[in-house]
Simulated assay, not measured.
Amino acid sequence: MDSVELLLHPVRLRIVQTFLGDRTLTTSELSAELDDIPPGSLYRHVARMVDAEVLEIVAERRIRGTIERTYRLRLTAAQITPEQLATMSTEDHRRAFTAFVAGLLADFDRYLERDEIDYVRDGVGYRVAGMWLDDAEFIEFIEDLSRVVAPRLANGPAPGRVRRTVRTFHIPAGPDPTPEPPATDERE
């Protein structure tokens, strides 16, 4: 199974997203976080991801006659390469985007289920912004954003740190990317 097919499955994509932030989890911990997925199904998906080397076993311990494994995401194996991206069908992209949006909704639903919610304190936000950028300005924007985000991806768990999910989406906003020239007052 190629990595596109492996990663575009909605359950496996949720597993990948749960491991983001350099987390290590046992299947029990993973099952507690993804409690809407039947354990047998979750274990099968984890095994498939281990076989594909997307998840690696970082520890094992014996508990009551069984082996409990702790897993970590191999981030380099959990990404779709630019070459693979270029060969994805429209339906593949639709499935990937649907999984992206479903993950976003699930994350927000989990946040809303908390006993105490404070959007400002918790740093929760969502926003849509429109920008007029030519291709060079857009590339510069993406590079600037990467410079801000990249060093923080290396942060590990520490006292006072909270694992936060940041999702981005960029798309041309309409069929005609060229703005109309401003109207002039003919009386001038």
Score class of each variant (00 low, 15 high):
residue 2 D to T: 04
residue 5 E to Y: 03
residue 7 L to V: 15
residue 8 L to N: 15
residue 9 H to C: 01
residue 10 P to F: 03
residue 12 R to H: 05
residue 12 R to P: 13
residue 14 R to L: 08
residue 16 V to R: 15
residue 17 Q to V: 08
residue 18 T to V: 10
residue 19 F to P: 07
residue 22 D to Q: 15
residue 23 R to A: 11
residue 24 T to V: 06
residue 25 L to Q: 10
residue 25 L to R: 10
residue 28 S to G: 15
residue 28 S to M: 13
residue 28 S to E: 13
residue 32 A to E: 05
residue 33 E to F: 05
residue 38 P to A: 13
residue 39 P to E: 02
residue 40 G to A: 14
residue 43 Y to F: 10
residue 45 H to G: 00
residue 45 H to R: 12
residue 46 V to Q: 09
residue 46 V to S: 10
residue 46 V to A: 06
residue 49 M to V: 10
residue 52 A to T: 11
residue 52 A to H: 12
residue 61 R to H: 10
residue 63 I to C: 07
residue 64 R to V: 12
residue 64 R to G: 09
residue 66 T to R: 15
residue 66 T to M: 13
residue 66 T to E: 13
residue 67 I to Y: 03
residue 67 I to H: 06
residue 67 I to M: 13
residue 68 E to L: 07
residue 71 Y to C: 08
residue 72 R to V: 09
residue 73 L to F: 04
residue 75 L to M: 10
residue 75 L to K: 10
residue 76 T to I: 12
residue 77 A to S: 14
residue 80 I to D: 02
residue 80 I to V: 15
residue 80 I to H: 01
residue 81 T to A: 01
residue 84 Q to G: 02
residue 85 L to Q: 10
residue 86 A to R: 14
residue 86 A to T: 11
residue 86 A to P: 07
residue 86 A to C: 08
residue 86 A to K: 13
residue 89 S to M: 05
residue 89 S to H: 01
residue 92 D to E: 08
residue 93 H to E: 01
residue 95 R to C: 03
residue 96 A to F: 03
residue 96 A to D: 03
residue 99 A to W: 04
residue 99 A to R: 08
residue 99 A to E: 07
residue 100 F to L: 07
residue 101 V to I: 15
residue 102 A to C: 00
residue 103 G to L: 04
residue 103 G to P: 06
residue 104 L to C: 11
residue 105 L to T: 04
residue 105 L to P: 01
residue 106 A to E: 09
residue 107 D to G: 02
residue 107 D to A: 14
residue 107 D to L: 07
residue 108 F to M: 15
residue 111 Y to W: 10
residue 111 Y to E: 10
residue 113 E to C: 05
residue 114 R to I: 02
residue 123 G to Q: 06
residue 123 G to F: 04
residue 125 G to P: 01
residue 132 W to P: 06
residue 133 L to E: 04
residue 135 D to R: 13
residue 138 F to Y: 06
residue 139 I to R: 12
residue 141 F to Y: 12
residue 142 I to E: 05
residue 143 E to Y: 00
residue 145 L to R: 14
residue 146 S to I: 05
residue 149 V to D: 05
residue 150 A to G: 04
residue 151 P to Y: 04
residue 152 R to H: 14
residue 152 R to A: 08
residue 153 L to I: 03
residue 153 L to D: 01
residue 154 A to V: 00
residue 155 N to K: 00
residue 156 G to E: 07
residue 160 G to N: 03
residue 162 V to I: 11
residue 163 R to S: 11
residue 165 T to G: 03
residue 165 T to A: 08
residue 166 V to H: 00
residue 167 R to M: 14
residue 167 R to P: 07
residue 167 R to N: 12
residue 168 T to L: 15
residue 169 F to Y: 14
residue 170 H to P: 02
residue 171 I to C: 03
residue 172 P to C: 04
residue 173 A to L: 08
residue 175 P to A: 07
residue 180 E to L: 14
residue 180 E to W: 07
residue 181 P to A: 10
residue 183 A to N: 02
residue 183 A to S: 06
residue 185 D to C: 09
residue 185 D to M: 13
residue 186 E to R: 13
